Simulated assay, not measured.
Amino acid sequence: MPPVTPLLRPGQFFTERDPDAGHALVLILLHLISVPLAVWGVGQVLKARVDGTVMVDNPNRPSEQFCEHAAASMDVGCDAPAQIERNIDAILADAIGQLIGPALLGVGIVFVLVGGALHVGAWVFNGENGVGTSFAVAMWGLLPSLVGLVVGVAVLFVVLDPLTVTTSDDPAVMAEWIQAEMAPLLTWQPLFTGATTLWSAIIWRSGLVHSQGLDNGSATLTAGTLAVLFWIVSLV
């Protein structure tokens, strides 16, 4: 028999436990930690699959317009090459680092919207507990998304073929390669996202029934509506 967890036996899990604001806070921290780890994982996959060097603009050289019009006494740095050679790993590391902040912001917005939507549903149908319980149920229901992240990174590692870029390549080569390699995954994305969202809906419904005291119909309507909206937004 599978262990009593919200992922495998949500009904019994919420029957035996009373999720509250403390649980919600712990789960929020867990989700927030997972975001930079997932972004880092994608970066490691790309660094493992892409190798070589490319030419980039020299950050230590003034703009071409400045060098063309500056007086001879002011052209400091204009004798430096306009472009320099840089390892692709360093470029990927910089790009991945810039994604962490927006990713955390996006996840924070998801937390507020999902938790708020579940609590509105619980309030409309006369739920028994407060907002802390609703947010805890919401966070438990987002655990399938974490599973999806792990599976997605693993699949990305498997499907990406190695690529070597050189200084003579157009920078667009790597972007085109990524688009071509990702095409099969994007084809299956709606189905994969739909499966994890359905999993989340089952957890949300169980939490609403056993922790907020909603009847089966009201809980199904609330969780199902949220799941459909969540799935549609995930495809944008």
Rank of each mutant, 00 (worst) to 15 (best):
A103F: 07
E181H: 00
W140Y: 15
V233F: 11
V76C: 09
G207L: 01
A82C: 04
G101I: 11
T53G: 05
V120Q: 03
V114H: 09
M139L: 13
G217S: 10
V50Y: 10
D18W: 09
S168I: 10
D169Q: 04
L149S: 13
N126V: 10
V153N: 06
P102V: 04
I178L: 15
V236G: 05
A219S: 08
W199K: 00
A71V: 09
W140E: 03
A38P: 00
S211A: 15
H119F: 15
G127V: 05
V39N: 06
M174H: 07
V107Q: 14
A38E: 10
I232L: 14
P184S: 06
W123N: 09
A48H: 12
M182D: 09
L198H: 00
R61T: 05
D75M: 14
A138G: 09
W140P: 01
V107M: 14
A38K: 05
I100S: 03
A71M: 14
D75K: 14
A38N: 11
V42R: 01
E176M: 13
A24L: 01
G217D: 10
R205I: 01
A117G: 06
M1F: 09
V120R: 06
D20T: 02
L143T: 11
D51Y: 08
L214R: 00
R17Q: 11
D161L: 12
K47L: 10
V56E: 11
A154S: 12
R9N: 11
I88A: 06
V110W: 09
P102L: 07
G43R: 04
P19A: 01
P102S: 07
T220A: 15
T166N: 11
I28E: 06
V173A: 12
I28P: 00
V50M: 11
A175E: 13
V56P: 02
L7Y: 00
S234I: 02
G148F: 10
V120M: 09
Q12H: 08
H31R: 07
V173M: 12
P19N: 04
V4H: 00
T197W: 08
T15A: 14
A24M: 02
T222M: 02
G141D: 04
G108T: 03
D170I: 07
A93Q: 14
L142E: 09
L118P: 05
G106K: 07
G127M: 02
W199A: 01
T225S: 14
G130W: 02
D18G: 11
D161T: 14
M182Q: 12
L226V: 10
I88R: 04
G11I: 10
W231S: 00
P162D: 07
L235Q: 12
G213I: 04
